[in-house]
């Protein structure tokens, strides 16, 4: 039965091989063109646009990482802001301590985030489901209080990014923008690549049934820890780049739940467990923000209500409303289940 299906699909693929090749090239050209336009952006836009784009890309990356955990690993974290803080503080302190160019200090964000994630995977993965979610929040609270009480990290005042002085304004803005673009596009590429490979398959089986997956040789815990570490690295780097924009980290803002809230909103609204969802979500999020953020509390009330309505009416998010009508799969990672 299974092998029959497979051979049929293989035959179909053979006959349409030429067509597949053609759409592949068209896709690649569109993608490269888009990337080119995005890279060239600093030459024909102002600083405010670039700053907005930095936010957009970093929020996108953080939402993608949250979605990687929740949508593909079934692990919900409400404490992802801990990595925003850890990543940003790592880069700021390495850069200012060693008078290092901030861009060269970015790898510190990745390394410290990964180490932090690995160490705290030990207590966190003793919790499951909703308990894990709130447990990560406790972790973020601890980190915030610890930083707040650490004089060498600037305590309550935080750290200014003094190493940025001496870099021309244009280059600084463009440089941060390119870093953000690299983080946004890079995390999409990394996750896309992961999902197409063995890890993607393992995740799919874990999501469907943990028991069945572990019975067929998938190490469920290891798979989840890998996801947690990858998400940490992405979130930490995105956090560092986001704070290159503002030139100052402080415990209250950098370890703020608002980061996780935004990531959850973007992923839930766009569609959990899809690569396309966060893209739609981040665009909607910034459209709403640009239009309504002047309304203060009411803006957040509206955001919260949208999230609630999405969970009640369309748990699959906006992307599920689109695919309900039309089967499209631009990233080519949806697997046919037979």
């Amino acid at each position: 039965m299974k092998s029959e299906n497979l051979s049929v699909t293989a035959a179909a693929a053979n006959t349409t091989g030429v067509a597949v090749n053609k759409t592949y090239w068209i896709k690649s050209i569109i993608l490269l063109g888009l990337l080119g336009v995005l890279i060239a952006l600093p030459w024909f836009t102002g600083y405010s646009t670039q700053r907005l784009m930095v936010e957009l890309f970093t929020f996108y990356a953080i939402a993608l990482a949250w979605n990687l955990l929740a949508g593909y690993g079934g692990i919900v974290s409400v404490g992802q802001h801990v990595f925003v803080g850890i990543g940003a503080y790592a880069m700021f302190s390495v850069s200012t301590t060693f008078s290092l160019n901030p861009w060269l200090a970015l790898p510190a964000s990745i390394i410290v985030s990964i180490l932090f994630a690995l160490i705290f995977a030990v207590p966190m993965f003793r919790l499951r489901g909703a308990y894990f979610a709130v447990g990560t929040w406790v972790l973020a609270e601890m980190a915030r209080i610890a930083v707040l009480n650490s004089d060498w990290l600037g305590a309550g005042g935080g750290i200014p990014l003094t190493t940025m002085t001496g870099i021309s304004r244009w280059l600084r803005n463009a440089g941060v923008y390119w870093a953000a673009l690299a983080v946004g596009a890079g995390s999409l590429a990394v996750i896309w690549w992961l999902m197409r490979g063995r890890l993607g398959l393992a995740l799919l089986s874990v999501r469907d049934s943990e028991a069945a997956a572990s019975a067929s040789g998938v190490n469920v815990l290891r798979t989840k820890v890998i996801l947690w570490v990858i998400a940490a690295a992405i979130t930490g780097t995105a956090g560092a780049v986001a704070y290159m924009n503002t030139l100052q980290v402080s415990p209250g803002a950098t370890f703020s739940l608002n980061w996780t809230a935004a990531a959850i909103f973007i992923a839930v609204l766009g569609g959990i467990g899809t690569l396309e969802g966060p893209l739609i979500g981040v665009i909607v999020y910034f459209l709403l923000r640009e239009c309504f953020s002047s309304y203060g509390s009411w803006y957040f009330i509206i955001l919260g209500c949208i999230a609630i309505l999405t969970m009640v009416l369309a748990p699959g998010g906006a992307w599920s409303l689109i695919t309900r009508r039309k089967q499209i799969d631009p990233f080519g990672i949806r697997r046919i289940l037979s």
Binding site: G74, V76, V78, A130, A261, S297, W298, I301, G304, M311
Partner: peptide, 21 residues
């Protein structure tokens, strides 16, 4: 298990901001 978590997360934001308002 995750739907109630995310729904009440939205509710939490709504309550906090309604109180602030």
């Amino acid at each position: 298990p995750l739907s109630p978590l995310l729904l009440t997360f939205g509710l939490s934001i709504v309550i906090q901001n309604l109180l602030q308002e």
